[in-house]
């Protein structure tokens, strides 16, 4: 039997393949147009609209938005009460990020280096499982756990650690009447809720560090601590940064947790929510919303300067 050197065309699929083969740019255009439209119009477009709003101001008498370019709204951010909100949010986000990083690292390290087969599946399940249940349910559950009559107070009494709990709650700025009404409580819930977003990128970056790299370090005379500092940590840095982008920006934007757990002192997210809702001050809400973006940009610039992405 002989076969032809050129196979016949089999309908539309072959014709399209041929068309794209002759014009590779066409394929690229077809593939890229929808995501670029999405990114350009829906995402960047709404960001631009937000930015535009923040340069308007509100008329003090009528309460209407004046559509004239002004920096007045941004100046308002620097009023003591607003600056307070920004600073509180920034501190909380930094603390949550640090807390998440400290807790996530050993977990991610174990999963990347030692967990195999079944244990790896257990790891992924353990990390992802909390993400599958409703966020609100988790937060309310934590409110109960942290409440004055809650399980933590009860357990502390049971093992005779009430003194320590009360001592912690007595620390000004962190403590409060009970864990569920203290900044510490807000911190704990934030750390719990965002932890998976730190573990997963960290684990991915640690997984990419080949064992031979660690062996090379030991081979050249490094102790375990030295290997950790000079090889593992720098190589894990892109993952840490990726994770911290999540925890940092998620904390800065959240407006539910501080309402349910904590002192009801306002955070940026809550301020935005209230300004655009009840107060109807869209320009100030927009200006507030720009703050996390600026903070993230500054953070990433510093991280880049410090060489956090050198291992990429």
């Amino acid at each position: 039997m002989t076969t032809p050197a050129i196979l016949p065309e089999r309908g539309l699929a072959d014709r399209l393949t041929a068309l794209f083969w002759r014009h590779p740019r066409l394929l690229l255009a077809v593939l890229l147009t929808p995501p670029l439209l999405w990114l350009g119009v829906v995402y960047l477009g709404s960001l631009a609209a937000l930015l535009l709003q923040s340069f308007y101001s509100i008329d003090e008498f009528s309460g209407m938005v004046k559509e004239e370019f002004t920096l007045k709204t941004y100046a308002e951010l620097f009023r003591a009460q607003n600056l307070d909100i920004i600073l509180r949010t920034l501190l909380m986000s930094a603390a949550v990020t640090l807390g998440c990083a400290l807790i996530a690292f050993p977990i991610a390290y174990y999963a990347a280096r030692f967990a195999r087969g079944k244990w790896k599946a257990v790891f992924y399940l353990g990390v992802m499982l909390p993400l599958w249940s409703s966020y609100l349910v988790k937060v309310y559950a934590w409110k109960l756990i942290l409440a004055k009559e809650g399980i933590i107070t009860w357990a502390a009494e049971g093992v005779g650690l009430s003194m320590i709990l009360n001592a912690i709650l007595a620390i000004p700025g962190i403590g409060g009447n009970s864990l569920s009404t203290s900044p510490l409580g807000t911190f704990i819930v934030f750390v719990y809720v965002w932890l998976p977003y730190m573990i997963l990128p960290m684990q991915a970056s640690l997984e990419r560090v080949p064992t031979s790299m660690l062996e090379a370090s030991a081979d050249l005379g490094a102790s375990r601590a030295q290997t950790f500092r000079t090889v593992i940590l720098p190589l894990a840095m892109p993952g840490v940064i990726a994770g911290s982008i999540f925890t940092f920006s998620l904390t800065m934007g959240d407006y539910i947790i501080p309402q349910i757990v904590g002192t009801s002192a306002r955070f940026i997210g809550l301020a935005v929510y209230q300004l655009q809702g009840t107060a109807g001050n869209i320009p100030l809400a927009a200006a507030f919303a720009v703050v996390p973006i600026v903070i993230m940009l500054v953070y990433l610039t510093i991280a880049k300067r410090k060489g956090a992405f050198d291992a990429l």
Binding site: S212, M213, E215, A216, D219, L220, G221, A222, S223, L235
Partner: peptide, 27 residues
């Protein structure tokens, strides 16, 4: 290993990607 005065040239070289050549050699 770190106390054996024996050094290895690894099969995949295992150079540290985040360090330049000088720092790799001086490690």
């Amino acid at each position: 290993p770190n106390r054996r005065n024996v050094n290895t040239v690894f099969q995949d070289y295992a150079l540290f990607p985040h360090m330049n050549v000088r720092d790799n050699v001086g490690y």
